[in-house]
Design a binder for these strands. Structure first.
Length: 583
RNA sequence: GCCCUCGUAGUUAAAUGGAUAUAACUGCGGACUUCUAAGCCGUUAUUCCAGGUUCGAUUCCUGGCGAGGGCACCA
């Protein structure tokens, strides 16, 4: 952090009067080592702006930097079009490695740059629905984002916004009453699977009642709503949901059964994934907090009745579709509860918050609507509401869906991964280590890519443990630990160590850790961290694959090895991945 | 119909408007009586098409083509 900041400040100071404040120059780590540790394009931008030769401006800046003596920089170079490249001094690299060596858990931590409370809402599975691989992304990515923010010293609240309310429960109640056997379900080995089967049966039956379903979406206008088929089953389900909302005892009883059975299942999965939450503010918690929102919407003239329902219509220029907040039967919707949730969060935590929803990208336009409404209501200002979108798992035959029956249960995936890890282990590892490896592979597979892209589900990919994978990083850390264990007899005096070329190259990458962490935090993008870890591990392995560090009693090598292991372990931890004791 | 994403080696991915587009997998070819082969080294190959903005475009803008998603009582 220090080096980056020092150089950044120096540039800012030097260009203060020449560049307009909103101009964004860059200070980045070049891919090519020969371009230095940091490189800026400031001179190019100024040259462009003042219509002067960037090279001479760069030379001027360089002179300025030299005069003001950047203590951490050994050399400054001005190159071709007008780049200014900074080369860090050896002592800086040494200090960084020492920092990582001494502070395995706090390295680059507690650098608070944002004092607002960050509410990270993620995972949010639906009660009485399968916890599938589809929920995995939100769970893993959200957890990692929260960990990264926490490491930087942010105030963070991890919230699981359980889908425990909605018309779906009307459907569940009807299905259980018609076809289910409560006792048998409760005693079943996998109660959630029973519930899901009932839900699917409901969907099949009600669809049949409606006859052929027209899947094409007609143009949305207030005037011509398409006539859809009717279904007595659906009507019954809607009635039950209204009863549930009104507190009908029988409805509540069945609802509670569903919630309890599901939560038991979810807890097991969270435990395996090492994911925890601070709050479980499910949708049902806001069932009695929606009236205020609806009243506010009416008071501010934001809603209008249409076809018996209450809708928010947006200005044309926003290009947003209308949003329904109350059904014609008086039932509420997801949107109503979301608005109530955020309103309550604002009351509970105060105005100074950021709410991050880690939710699939198929809900992108929905969140745009919600954010807009919250802005119109005066709840939040720009930058306080963030939708971190993740891509979907895709199958050869299209998107996964509960209804299509194209479901892969997460527990099965985890089991398969652990099985794969066990096969590779050759029977030398304990169960807990094998579990860490299998789950690490799955998590890393998800976190290694930009989360917005879709992921093609394939067993081959997801269970891969070679190459750019979690086990690769784990393996590197474990190998270093083992090496250090064997070298323990040696006394190490890190302050007196002189780094060689290879150690410096590794230290150079360690020096980039804070920049990566900040980037991952700012963009809510853990994949920057994941690819960094691969880079660090690979560089380390390429230098120390076959070197006899112990025999050579290479103090510098051992020192950098420990620093590397610390950074890898910390980085994995921020991704929610544990390092096994043995591999 | 309207709106929103996304098109990078054979495959899966990376790259704040920067310098020679980076890795992995696969293929082919190597090294090593070692700290642990889930490892290491070498090698072939890439920005959908056409314009535009820029000193500089995978990145920004426009138009095609292709894939996916969303759009009224689901969440």
């Amino acid at each position: 952090m220090k080096s980056y900041e020092v150089i950044w400040d120096a540039i800012n100071l030097a260009v203060l009067d020449t560049l307009p404040p909103d101009t964004k120059f860059s200070l980045s780590k070049p891919k090519n080592l020969s371009f230095g540790d940091y490189s800026t394009n400031a001179a190019l931008l100024i040259g462009n702006l003042l219509e002067e030769n960037p090279m001479s401006i760069a030379e001027g800046l360089k002179k300025n930097f030299l005069e003001n003596y950047l203590s951490n920089v050994a050399r400054i170079e001005v190159v071709k079009p007008g780049f200014i490249n900074f080369f860090l001094s050896d002592s800086v690299l040494q200090d960084v490695a020492l920092d990582a060596f001494n502070n395995p858990y706090t390295f680059c931590g507690n650098v608070i740059v944002d004092s607002r409370t960050h509410i990270v809402e993620f995972s949010s599975p639906n009660i009485a629905k399968p916890f599938t691989i589809g929920h995995l992304r939100s769970t893993i990515i959200g957890n990692s984002i929260a960990s990264i923010l926490l490491h930087l010293g942010y105030k963070v609240v991890k919230d699981n916004h359980l889908g425990d309310w909605g018309t779906q429960f009307g459907k569940m109640i009807v299905a259980i009453k018609k076809w289910g056997d409560e006792e048998q379900i409760s005693n079943s080995e996998n109660p959630v699977k029973e519930l899901v089967a009932l839900y699917q049966k409901f969907h099949a039956e009600s669809t049949a009642e409606m006859g052929v379903v027209d899947d094409t979406n007609p143009q949305l206008t207030e005037e011509d709503e398409p006539e859809k088929g009717t279904s007595p089953l659906l009507d019954e389900a809607r009635e039950w949901f209204v009863k549930l909302e009104k507190g009908d005892l029988e409805a509540r009883r069945i609802w509670k059964i569903c919630v309890d059975l599901s939560m038991r299942e979810f807890s097991k999965i969270y435990e395996r994934l090492c994911v925890s939450f601070d709050t479980f503010w499910g949708e049902s918690m806001f069932e009695n907090k929606m009236d205020v929102v609806l009243q506010e919407l009416k008071d501010k003239n934001l809603v209008r009745e249409s076809k018996g329902a209450l809708m928010v219509f947006f200005e044309d220029k926003t290009k947003l579709d209308p949003l329904m907040v109350l059904k014609k039967d008086g039932g509420t919707l997801y949107a109503t509860r979301d608005l109530a949730t955020d309103r309550y969060r604002k009351e509970f935590y105060g105005k100074n918050i950021v709410i991050i929803n880690e939710v699939g990208k198929e809900q992108a336009s929905y969140f745009k609507q919600i954010f807009k409404v919250e802005e119109l209501l005066g709840y939040f200002e720009k930058g306080q509401r963030i939708h971190v979108k993740h891509g979907l798992y895709k199958f050869p035959d299209g998107k996964m869906s509960t209804r299509k029956g194209n479901v892969i249960w997460l527990a099965d995936v985890l089991d398969e991964a652990v099985k794969g890890a066990r096969a590779l282990s050759g029977g030398n590892l304990g169960d807990s280590d094998i579990e860490k490896i299998g789950i690490g592979a799955i998590k890393f597979y998800d976190l290694y890519r930009d989360c917005e892209g879709d992921v093609l589900f394939s067993w081959e990919n997801i269970l891969n443990m070679e190459g750019d994978t979690g086990p690769y990083v784990q393996y590197t850390a474990v190998r270093i630990n083992s090496l250090l264990e064997k070298a323990r007899t040696q006394e190490m005096v890190p302050y007196e160590i002189v780094l060689g070329k290879s150690e410096q190259d590794i230290a150079r990458i360690i020096e980039g850790f804070p920049v990566v962490i900040m980037k991952a935090a700012n963009e809510y993008a853990p994949h920057h961290l994941a690819s960094y870890l691969i880079d660090l591990a690979r560089t380390y392995n390429s230098y120390y694959a076959n070197t006899k560090i112990i025999q050579e009693r290479n103090q510098a090598g051992l020192f950098v090895s420990q620093a590397t292991a610390n950074v890898l372990t910390l980085g994995l931890k921020l991704l929610g991945i544990e390092v096994p004791s043995k591999m």
